[in-house]
Design a protein around this nucleic acid. Structure first.
Lengths: 328, 328
DNA sequence: CCAATTCACTTAATCGATCAAGTTAAGTGC
DNA sequence: GCACTTAACTTGATCGATTAAGTGAATTGG
């Protein structure tokens, strides 16, 4: 079996408490003894048992991450998760993935974690509610919809400002009839894009053109939907395509419809990804900085772990620069 | 604070041991008492403390997942991870993400897990070695390179067969000079593709044409590299593009070089993704079934947890069907 | 009717760490 | 020289569960 504190203590001829003091760098041990214990720690290859420690301290040293099961395609969530994992790791905290939390657990508990990160809480997700209802600290990426218990902290992207920036760019580039294409309406993110767009339209006396499509729709159906929406001279001449990866697909369809992307029609993606850079023509996109976003969520949660629950959720923003390329 | 076993026992007027027996469905409690305890469990809202349980049983109920930090773009790894998470969850086991394991831990240990899943172990990754060197059960997705300690289990894709299938398809489709394009050579996967291709070339008296590119290379450089490689009448007239997402990029470049993908040149992707389906033309691809692959890794590990270490690693295969589309 | 078995529990040890509360010895101040 | 502090430890309780061993009562067998 593995070496325990008590094994080390025996070898060193001291109590386990003394070894524990050394391990945690606390005072109460002479320098001489400390050195001796450190040497023994080293040569026996001792490793702390995190369970024992966690049980005693009621601190597990890990946090849970809950992600929506939908829309996990493309790299956005991987990136976010990696940001979270990296930031946590720098603070010796590990990351537990919680898939599809059941709304009722019975006697089984959530895995032992000190807090939760909730990515993009969808309004129709039962697991989200179960998590928010606990007493544990929770940070959510994007604001959960009204009606749910509030989290301790919220990390946001400046969706309103980004959207305005996109449509201003379209306008400055000469577009007359810019439109918004979405792949869902349940995420807070999509909701904010739409609100910002409608607001922009009001401000610029432009008629709003919103199209919602299903990412899983077959190509033919999608073409049929898009054709009238982008018809030359009447339909959109500039599109903000929200949703990871959809822009590339739209670009392909526009081409088959006889458009030249970046020329006869502008296209900007609401989510940047390597695809955008490598597509021909390269696609202008909003860089949500998922890695940074994940990192920020983790860091906020770690801060909140040591504090009492704030009355109002603490808010953080992660910038989302527009990466200008040839498509729009 | 939360309700503990002992709280429940007090209310019920029995010992904690009795409650524990009920919790674990063991016999030794009368039906009457059992019902009473169950009722109290319910009404107090008791939840097991997994730490206490884990400490006692030296079973944590979670496993670690280690993924290469490179090549996490695109959805392949997210899918794999979700497969792992789902399968584990069905067995009440949670998933711990371990980023960039340090090769030397000092006194700090790995997070408390019962076993590890190692995805696509790269030959140059120090963390991989640190994990394999532990006494814990380890399952690896793809065989680790020689020289490393062997894992307990290995899950593989039939890379050799898939590659042969691709090139047979090229040949049957009339291609004269099929080539292989890779984005790295450190992964076992890439190595197997190349070996299979060279073997196929020998068997069919075809001259091997292998091109290795960096996924992060700027477009111009890539175009410069590809131009001679696919020159009409001399260069490749069919390409297997290994590496997630690269095929779409190659397709774009081929078009700018004047080719018509699926017509003047065939293209097949070594990794399927939603992009392939939505690209125009749709891109034929090998579906590695990442979700199934992840699931298989998890299930194999769970099996191995209860057994002694096998002498030879246990092997499993996940099929990888070729999804025929228009590009090749 | 007595020994043996079964049942329904309880007691107490245990997992591996941490930590409050001692204990002992040496040092300090006046 | 006596009271008091400080340093360097040790003791023993504790976190929340599981589990081997024990106990007393009821049941069974011959």
């Amino acid at each position: 079996m593995a070496v325990t504190l008590s094994d080390v203590a025996d070898v060193a001829g001291v109590s386990t408490a003394a070894v524990s003091l050394v391990l945690n760098g606390k005072k109460g041990v002479s320098n001489e003894t400390r050195q001796r214990i450190l040497a023994i720690l080293e040569e026996t290859g001792y490793r702390v048992n995190r369970l024992g420690r966690a049980l005693r301290q009621s601190r597990t040293g890990s946090v849970g991450l809950y992600m929506p099961s939908s829309a996990v395609h493309f790299g956005y969530y991987t990136e976010t998760m990696l940001g979270v994992a990296q930031a946590l790791h720098e603070h010796d905290t590990s990351l537990l993935i919680v898939p599809n939390a059941p709304s009722d657990l019975g006697v089984e508990s959530f895995p032992p974690v000190d807090g939760f990160i909730l990515m993009e809480p969808h309004s129709d997700d039962l697991g989200v509610e179960a998590i928010l209802r606990q007493e544990l600290p929770v940070v959510s990426g994007d604001t959960p919809s009204a009606g749910l218990p509030r989290p301790w902290g919220i990390v946001e992207s400046p969706n309103f400002a980004s959207t305005v920036e996109v449509f201003d760019r379209f306008r400055n580039g000469g577009a007359q009839r810019p439109g918004l294409l979405l792949i869902d309406q349940v995420s807070t993110w999509a909701g904010e894009l739409e609100a910002a767009y409608r607001r922009w339209c009001e401000d610029h006396q432009s008629e709003p053109r919103v199209l919602v499509v299903d990412i899983l729709e077959p190509n033919d159906d999608l073409i049929a939907k898009l054709k009238p929406w982008v018809e030359s001279g009447i339909g959109c001449d500039a599109i903000l395509a929200g949703g990871d990866g959809i822009a590339v697909r739209i670009a392909g369809i526009l081409r088959t419809l006889g458009h030249r992307v970046g020329d006869t029609i502008k296209l900007i993606s609401g989510v940047d990804s390597p695809m955008m850079e490598f597509h021909t023509p390269r696609i202008t996109a909003v860089d949500l900085q998922p890695r940074q976003f994940g990192r920020e969520c983790a860091e906020l949660l770690l801060e909140l772990l040591d504090k009492p629950r704030p009355v109002e959720p603490m808010r953080r923003q992660v910038s989302a620069p527009l990466i200008a390329r040839e498509s729009g």
